[in-house]
């Protein structure tokens, strides 16, 4: 078995084996282990860090967008409330104005009505007075025609008055 045979002291190739193993393995350790591996690991680390950073940035952007949306919503809510308030105030004012104007017109109308009623009453009174005198004349004339008695105007008036006013 060559593997065991070389472990005997007088074997010619044990020294060669060990020498070349140490040379080759030292070369691999220095060039690949110490030289190439850290660079590759650095690349992987940089990539991992970049991915983590990008994820964090995306998360932050997401949160910022959420905040923005929230503030936008609050703003729009506030402006909607303000608009509703303004509309309500305008409605209120318009209603009050209309009421005031209505009241004014109402007052004018009732004033006119009262004046008209007063006019009517005066006209009625004067008409009543005229009726009395006309009735007294007519009664005097009737009496004169029927009986030939001349009735004094004052008497006729009094009689008419008595009849008219009960």
């Amino acid at each position: 078995m060559p593997q065991i045979a070389q472990l005997t002291a007088d074997n010619w190739y044990l020294a060669s084996q060990l020498f070349w193993l140490l040379v080759v393995f030292a070369g691999i350790y220095l060039v690949i282990g110490r030289g190439m591996l850290p660079k590759i690991e650095a690349t992987v680390d940089a990539r991992d860090r970049k991915v983590a950073d990008d994820l964090a940035a995306a998360k932050a952007a997401h949160a910022a967008a959420d905040n923005l949306e929230e503030s936008y919503r609050q703003q729009s809510d506030a402006s909607r409330a303000a608009a509703q308030k303004a509309v309500a105030a305008a409605k209120d004012k318009a209603a009050k104005d209309a009421e005031k104007r209505l009241a004014k017109v109402d007052a004018e109308l009732s004033e006119k009505l009262a004046a008209a009623e007063a006019g009517v009453a005066a006209a009625r009174k004067s008409a009543m007075a005229e009726i009395e005198s006309v009735a007294a004349d007519a009664a005097g004339d009737l009496v004169a025609k029927l009986s030939g008695v001349k009735v004094a105007a004052a008497d006729a008036k009094a009689a008419v008055k008595a009849v008219l006013h009960g």
């Binding site: 010619w12 190739y13 020294a15 060669s16 084996q17 020498f19 070349w20 193993l21 080759v24 393995f25 070369g27 691999i28 060039v31 690949i32 190439m36 591996l37 660079k39 590759i40 690349t43």
Partner: peptide, 29 residues
């Protein structure tokens, strides 16, 4: 001790070179 370049050493060197080439291909970073 007499140190000779043997077939064992040759295959170690081949392994080292193959490994170096393999790693070199991954160094584009």
């Amino acid at each position: 001790h007499e140190v000779l370049f043997t077939n064992s050493a040759l295959w170690m060197v081949i392994a080292a070179i193959a490994l170096g080439l393999f790693m070199w291909g991954g160094m584009r970073r």
